[in-house]
């Protein structure tokens, strides 16, 4: 399957069949998940209705981190197996991951206002998330800055892999820094054990976000493959003029 899809035309064909199935499935799971989350799930006894922000915040945060790891793995596969779609997949995933990170930060701020009385606190998790956004922006900037696609893929791969090595170090350092400065009395959302009537809708929401990622990735990747083809055709034209 993996190698079968290495051929770009074959990938376009197979993904062309997959997309009309995947997209409605994503929409359906989204509707059901947020029906559970917004209607069925009970309000929190402490946080009231605001707890429902969690159903967007938690999946977005998890995916934000997951997509970065996905990119690094895709680049490692690109280096090792020289699979032509691996680097393109990482590139296609980056803007989606960055948007998830932004969603995580915005919903976190909206949640923070009723909980902490302020939109932004230098909490360890929020700070790490913000740094993750910087990593995404740097990664995307590299793709933009390097003209030649093969070289861009190599350089972007180095950036992603170095970044993923650093993510745990950054997380650790920010937590260390946070315990030094932060009074521990703050109520931490999501820190307590989660009741099952909340956990089930949350898992459905996670699934919905994962499907959304898969759908968007496929759309982006198809666009990327077509863009490469256009570039190749242009190069052939220039080459024949010489």
């Amino acid at each position: 399957m993996f190698n079968y899809l290495a051929n770009p035309s074959r990938f376009l064909k197979v993904s062309g069949y997959a997309l009309p199935v995947l997209a409605p499935l994503t929409a359906a799971v989204f509707l059901y998940a947020y029906y559970l989350a917004l209607v069925v799930a009970p309000p929190d006894y402490q946080q009231g209705e605001t707890v429902r922000i969690m159903f967007v915040h938690v999946p977005a945060s998890a995916l934000a981190l997951g997509v970065y790891v996905f990119m690094a793995i895709a680049h490692i596969l690109g280096f090792v197996l020289r699979h032509p779609l691996a680097d393109a997949a990482a590139r296609a995933a980056a803007p989606i991951g960055a948007v998830f990170t932004v969603i995580s930060l915005i919903t976190g701020a909206l949640w923070g206002k009723p909980m902490w009385g302020t939109y932004w606190v230098w909490d360890a998790r929020i700070t790490s998330m913000f740094i993750l956004l910087l990593l995404y922006l740097g990664y995307m900037a590299v793709w933009k800055a390097v003209d030649e696609p093969h070289r861009a893929a190599k350089i972007a791969g180095i950036v992603a892999i170095v970044g993923v090595i650093n993510v745990p170090i950054i997380k650790f350092s920010v937590e260390w820094w946070n315990t030094l400065h932060q009074p521990a009395s703050l109520l931490r959302p999501g820190g307590a054990a989660i009741a099952p009537e909340i956990l089930t809708p949350l898992l459905w929401c996670m699934g919905a976000f994962a499907l959304l990622f898969a759908t968007l990735l496929l759309i982006n990747l198809r666009a990327e493959v077509v863009a490469r083809r256009v570039r190749q055709m242009e190069l052939a034209r220039v080459g024949s003029v010489a």
Binding site: L137, I169, V174
Partner: peptide, 21 residues
């Protein structure tokens, strides 16, 4: 790269955070 100097800051600053802390 064009504007390499700007890009360095964006790429390296996140990596500098643990060192700063």
């Amino acid at each position: 790269l064009r504007k390499g100097g700007l890009l360095i800051s964006l790429l390296i600053l996140p990596l500098y955070i643990p060192l700063l802390i």
